[in-house]
Nucleic acid binder design. Structure first.
Length: 895
RNA sequence: GGGCGAUUAGCUCAGUUGGUUAGAGCGCUACGUUGACAUCGUAGAGGUCACAGAUUCGAGUUCUGUAUCGCCCA
């Protein structure tokens, strides 16, 4: 075995071993409920980033854990066709070739996209392999697969037939760069510094009256260019300032259109002047006001974001140009009252970052209310549990205020809407199968709807479409509903909530019982990683540099569920070092026990002899219990940290060191020690395997081969399917825990004293100890003290009538330790040290006395808590008296 | 405007039914290459747990408010 662990040398080998060995496939176990996860399908647009890294790591931890628990485990991988994103990258590619999709046509364009997809799909698959994802590749799906496309059509047709899908002319979010409609969720609202412009609209004189000076109404707007499309001015009916002019006509500046002044509840009286201009064709609120008051809709901004012919003198200008020009013109005519700085919540396209234009357009929608209510109830009444629970609120708020979902996109890449229009009879047909003959008039002049469906329209079916729905496949029977949906909290609306809706609606029950939401990975400065900022960390680079296990362990342990994490190099380095520690501890075990037969015994069969043996087994059993509980509670970070602590501190720093003494013992002791070293290592590797699959499998295989003659008794041929450690209460040993802890204190104190006194490293100093009733215990542990604290054989006494002179004195609990250090001891310094310790003990003693003299505490706190405090106080008192006695002796010695 | 989160050692973070003297890694200081590991070991220093109240025998932990930072929704 090499001296240091080299991840690059072994990772690929083990992944191949697992994959080719079929370990990722579900192993049928009818006795237990299958454990199933649908992997959130990454966009086929590009490479995986650290967000996918954390998703894949956490899901793999769960999958590997359940696989080792013996559950029938299925992890379904796949990719998402990512409509707009993919279309955009391929269009960009075409642009570099000097062409575009319209020139080459729909068919050729789609061919190019498929080429792209094939390339990136395999790239994503390989990245998941590098991450160690133990997903079942034979179940891999793509949202544009034949099967999934069938599911999409089925869903579209069913919802249409149920009246939940409709086509309508609504105001939608239009991205002039993507040239497509977007759903509300695909629009980011960004607070942007802007202007609030106050514009005067002249009022038309009432019949018989002459227009008076000041006969104006002033409105405030953040979008002056839409003035051209105004068809009313609205005020709140309760606003007394305007009661008298409701029903009169105002005149739109520049174009002179006469528009009514209407009263509408939607108007906020304290915004601007309390009067607002109404542009039904360019604002969602105005659209609704327009519907209530039957206002005309005048579109002045086109789908290309340029002013339309309706914009009169501004026709053809870009919307931003037109704004500037119009404001300048209004200034000239004196219709601008004032212009204030104002923060505008600008809607921007999630993909292109373009400012969204609300426009009226004919699109396909889903009525969400009927779907949302059952999804809401599923969480409210506990069929689904969200972890962490605080995201319930976010989930509820969104579902309670849900709007209809605009599902049509003016793209070519995606599931084409299964609707045909007949040129002969004008009828529309919605169909599961492609049609060539109109069922209404038998005409053949049919045109399929040009548009495709929102990508989320296919991914919201993911948990069941990947299992074969709408067919009643065995997979669907066996594996639906899945167990856990694990993903980032940023797509709770986009994806998670919608999956719950579709699952309940089409399958009759929720698609998973737990939703686990993880936080976002940020850079070292805490900023969100993005391509435009150039701060994206490539997981492949991290893995090349530090190994996959180091990256995985870092992602798993650097945060608390649902919280964001900063990825910092030092942490990854630390975890690479941990992998190396595992490697070297294993190397030690294999090397020092090489000549001892017996292989790796089952942990329940080992026979602890020494205190250290009993202690490490007790520690391990406690760890197993805790880690298992933590994983079941989705506290993966804490679970990982606990294993790390145990392995490094308890196993390596103490047990392995203690074993070096034991391995010098008789044959029986050596045999036993070797067995415990191996068994605890084997079991620790099992606990760690879900977190760090590669180094653990590598080391475990050494153990396995090393046990060649005993292989028959081994439970598994690979760690990936080795049974998860069971808790053995028989190894619980509170006495060992306490005694070993005392021993650790003694050793640490002596080491510290030697350090302080600058005792030469290899020099063995004498030790005299007064240990009360623990003489036999310390007698047995004397070799450990000699070895670990570098001392001579300790001289043990129950009590010491005559305290050693010229000795440094230490206290471990009630155990007195004297280090005769002739000539080295500076009595003055020693007195100062003792004084400092005395003060500390006195303070603590005072605190405890105060607590125990408080009647409220004694009578109200739980008896065991009070008892504990009493014991503590007694211990402190004993300690104090010993310290003071020692101080007096020393003081007497001082010249 | 509504909601959520964070604030603990120089840095990055744990601390999940309220109960030892609040922990880890990195960094820092001292010592060390003894046959697993210098990607290491041994030991040490370092914190009024953002602030102000409240509840409680007891609060980093529960409640209220404030401040700063971040995110989501409208």
């Amino acid at each position: 075995m090499p001296k240091a662990y080299e991840p690059q040398a072994v990772e690929a080998k083990w992944y191949r071993f697992w994959e080719e060995g079929g370990y990722f496939k579900p192993r049928p176990n009818p006795a237990r409920k299958p454990f199933v996860i649908s992997m959130p399908p990454p966009n086929v647009t590009g490479a995986l980033h650290l967000g996918h890294g954390i998703t894949s790591t956490i899901e793999d931890i769960m999958i590997r854990y359940h696989r080792m628990q013996g559950d029938e485990t299925l992890w379904v991988p796949g990719e998402d066709h990512a409509g707009i994103a993919t279309q955009t990258v391929v269009e960009r590619l075409l642009a570099t070739e000097g062409t575009d999709r319209h020139q080459i046509g729909r068919e050729a364009f789609l061919e190019r996209v498929w080429q792209w997809v094939d390339q990136y799909k395999s790239r994503i698959q390989n990245q998941h392999r590098r991450l160690g994802a133990s997903c079942d590749w034979s179940h891999e799906r793509f949202t544009l697969d034949e099967g999934l496309s069938k599911a999409v059509r089925e869903v579209f047709v069913r919802l249409y037939e149920e009246g939940l899908i409709y086509r309508g002319e609504r105001i939608i979010n239009w991205c002039p760069v993507c040239m497509s409609a977007l759903s509300d969720l695909e629009v980011n609202h960004v607070n942007t510094p802007g202007k609030l412009t106050y514009v005067r609209y002249p009022l038309k004189p009432v019949d018989g009256q002459v227009a008076g000076e000041g006969d104006y109404i002033t409105v405030a707007t953040t979008r002056p260019e839409t003035i051209l499309g105004d068809t009313a001015i609205a005020v709140n009916p309760k606003d007394h300032r305007y009661v008298n002019i409701i029903g009169r006509l105002a005149i739109v500046p520049v174009i002179g259109r006469e528009i009514p002044i209407v009263a509408d509840e939607a108007v906020e009286a304290d915004f601007g002047t309390g009067a607002v201009k109404v542009t039904p064709a360019h604002d969602p609120t105005d659209f609704e006001i327009g519907q209530r008051h039957n206002l005309p809709r005048i579109q002045v901004i086109g789908f290309d974001a340029k002013m339309t012919a309706e914009a009169g003198p501004y026709a053809g200008q870009d919307r931003h140009e037109a704004r500037k020009n119009l404001v300048a013109d209004l200034e000239k005519t004196g219709l601008i009252v004032k212009i204030e700085d104002y923060v505008v919540p600008l809607g921007r396209c999630q993909r292109s970052d373009t400012v969204i234009e609300p426009l009226i357009s004919k699109q396909w929608f889903i009525s969400m209310k009927p779907l949302a209510t059952p999804a809401l109830n599923a969480v409210k009444y506990g069929q689904i549990k969200i972890v962490p629970e605080r995201f319930n609120k976010t989930y509820f708020d969104w579902l309670e205020n849900i709007h209809d979902w605009c599902i049509s996109r003016q793209l070519w890449w995606g599931h084409r809407i299964p609707v045909w229009y007949c040129d002969s009879c004008g009828e529309m047909t919605v169909s599961r199968e492609d049609i060539t003959i109109c069922p209404h008039c038998e005409g053949t002049q049919l045109r399929q709807d040009e548009d495709v469906l929102d990508t989320w329209f296919s991914s919201w079916l993911w948990p069941f479409s990947t299992l074969g729905w709408p067919d009643h496949t065995p997979d669907l029977q066996r594996y639906y509903p899945t167990a856990v949906m694990e993903t980032g909290y940023d797509i709770i609306f986009f994806w998670v909530a919608r999956m719950v809706m579709s699952g309940i609606h089409f399958m009759g029950n929720a698609p998973f019982s737990t939703i686990y939401l993880h936080g976002l990975v940020r850079d070292a400065k805490g900023e969100k990683m993005s391509k435009s900022k150039g701060n994206v960390i490539d997981p492949l680079e991290v893995m090349d540099k530090f190994g996959t296990d180091a990256l995985r362990f870092t992602l798993a342990t650097s945060s608390t569920p649902g919280n964001d994490m900063k990825l910092i190099d030092e942490r990854i380095v630390g975890n690479r070092n941990f992998a190396n520690k595992i490697w070297n501890a294993s190397r030690f075990v294999l090397m020092t026990t090489a000549d001892i037969p017996g292989g790796v015994p089952a942990i329940e069969s080992v026979q602890p002899q020494t205190l250290a043996d009993r202690w490490i087994l007790q520690r391990f059993e406690r760890l197993t219990k805790t880690v298992t509980r933590l994983i079941e509670e989705f506290q993966f970070g804490e679970a990982g940290r606990q294993i790390n602590d145990f392995f490094w501190s308890d196993y390596c720093d103490w047990y392995v060191e203690a074993s070096k003494v034991q391995m010098r013992g008789d044959k029986q002791t050596r045999q036993n020690t070797a067995g415990i070293l191996r068994a605890v290592l084997d079991q620790s590797l099992r606990l760690l395997h879900p977190f760090m699959p590669f180094v653990t499998e590598e080391v475990w295989q050494y153990l396995y081969h090393f046990s060649q003659p005993d292989r028959a008794s081994w439970p598994a041929s690979a760690l990936i399917i080795a049974p998860w450690p069971q808790y053995h209460a028989a190894f619980e040993d509170e006495t060992a825990e306490q005694q070993f802890s005392l021993l650790q204190q003694v050793i640490t104190l002596i080491r510290d004293a030697r350090n302080q006194m600058n005792v030469e490293r290899s020099h063995r100093n004498p030790v005299i100890m007064a240990v009360g009733e623990d003489v036999s215990m310390f007698e047995a542990q004397a070799p450990l003290i000699e070895f670990l604290a570098t001392t001579e054989k300790p001289q043990l006494f129950s009590t010491l009538a005559q305290k050693p002179e010229q000795a440094m004195s230490l206290l471990a609990g009630a155990v007195e330790i004297y280090l005769p250090l002739a000539g080295l001891l500076d009595i003055g310094k020693e007195l100062a040290r003792l004084d400092k310790e005395i003060v500390q003990v006195q303070q603590e003693q005072a605190r405890l006395q105060g607590k125990l003299s408080n009647q409220n505490f004694v009578s109200r706190a739980r008896p065991e808590v009070v008892e504990k405090e009493r014991e503590k106080l007694a211990a402190h008192e004993e300690r104090l008296s010993k310290l003071q006695a020692r101080r007096n002796e020393l003081a007497a010695m001082q010249p």
